[in-house]
């Protein structure tokens, strides 16, 4: 087994494009779930909106890449309104049900034959829709730090991606330290109390949903830009739950939680996957085949998610004391 290769892969992925995408998605969940207590189980819907806005605006409607970004953000805000309107007055599980359902509705709609002309059906949309983005690439060749190497295009995506992450984290930091953030945390603890103090809980929840949704849309942007393609079946509901795992790994309601979580998550996922792959192909685990490695990794994610909630709901670096007070 080539441990150096495995580690290189794991390290590269832990700061690579996937880590950025999931970090942004988890940062959105951090605002919604971590600070406000909103159970958005359909973060992937915002990623669909992000990805398909870019691809369809450019490829199907002939708009520019920059218009596409605006379209994406506006669509994302509209989606938040649609999700929030019926559910934010109701108990938490209704939001969970409606968001997961909406994420599937969106996926089924964009993959439908009826709308193939615009969204490409099952095959999705493929083409150089992010050409205007890559035209700005200042890198002449790929960049490498030690064992970590990115291609020329990936280097540009990774650079912009981490800048976006930095901005998102800064916004989270500023907001959660403000009176606005105080209200969100209050809603998380007991929304009726906040309502009795004269704050419009409904509106604050909506703002949190919108802000977190926009962060999910940014994740969708990066996802689509990096591969210059959008495919409906890469936006299954499980994406949302990986983002939850990441958030809980890094610690919900912690400013850097999504970053820490995403880096660790992708390191572990790739490390476990590669290790399994190599040991299986070397014949050490006779009862498994390499096609089973993918599912097995996700079994670990599922178990990890359960264990985090049960044993360390405050995240792996979290403080037990704060949690002992919360009823969640």
């Amino acid at each position: 087994m080539d441990i150096v290769f495995v580690l290189e892969q794991a390290l590269t992925q832990s700061i690579g494009i996937q880590a950025i995408i999931y970090c942004l998605a988890a940062a959105g969940l951090n605002i919604q779930f971590g600070y406000t207590g909103l159970l958005n189980f359909g973060q992937v819907a915002f990623m669909i909106v992000g990805g398909y806005s870019i691809a369809a605006t450019v490829l199907s409607f002939g708009g520019s890449f920059w218009t596409a970004l605006v379209v994406g953000i506006i669509s994302s805000l509209i989606l938040s309104l649609i999700l929030g309107l019926p559910t934010l007055r109701l108990r938490a599980d209704y939001l969970a049900i409606v968001t997961i359902a909406t994420s599937e509705i969106l996926r089924l709609v964009v993959r439908s034959v009826a709308l193939r002309e615009w969204f490409g059906g099952v095959n999705g949309l493929n083409g150089k829709f992010a050409a205007q983005f890559y035209a700005l690439n200042p890198y002449q060749s790929g960049i490498g730090i030690g064992p970590i190497n990115f291609s020329q295009n990936d280097s540009w995506v990774v650079t912009i991606g981490w800048i976006l992450v930095a901005i998102v984290i800064l916004i989270t930091f500023l907001l959660t330290r403000s009176p606005w953030g105080r209200i969100l945390k209050g809603i998380r603890e007991d929304e009726e109390a906040i309502r009795s103090l004269g704050k419009s809980v409904y509106w604050y929840k909506m703002q949190a949903l919108m802000l977190g949704g926009v962060m999910g849309t940014l994740a969708g942007f990066i996802f689509a830009i990096a591969s210059q393609s959008v495919q409906p079946d890469s936006y299954v509901p499980d994406v949302t739950f990986f983002a939850y795992t990441i958030l809980l790994l890094g610690g919900a309601a912690r400013v850097f939680g999504p970053v820490v979580g995403s880096i660790i998550f992708w390191f572990l996922l790739v490390f476990i996957g590669q290790t399994l792959d190599q040991t299986i192909s070397a014949g050490y685990i006779p009862f498994l085949t390499s096609t089973q490695v993918g599912p097995i990794r996700f079994i670990f994610v599922g178990i990890g998610l359960m264990c985090l909630i049960i044993f360390r709901p405050q995240g792996i670096f979290g403080d037990r004391k704060e949690l002992a007070l919360g009823g969640r």
Partner: peptide
Amino acid sequence: GLMGMMIVSIGLALTLRY
């Protein structure tokens, strides 16, 4: 809490599905 349990059920669903 119920919210925690809902997330546990999600984790279980992932585990079982895969």
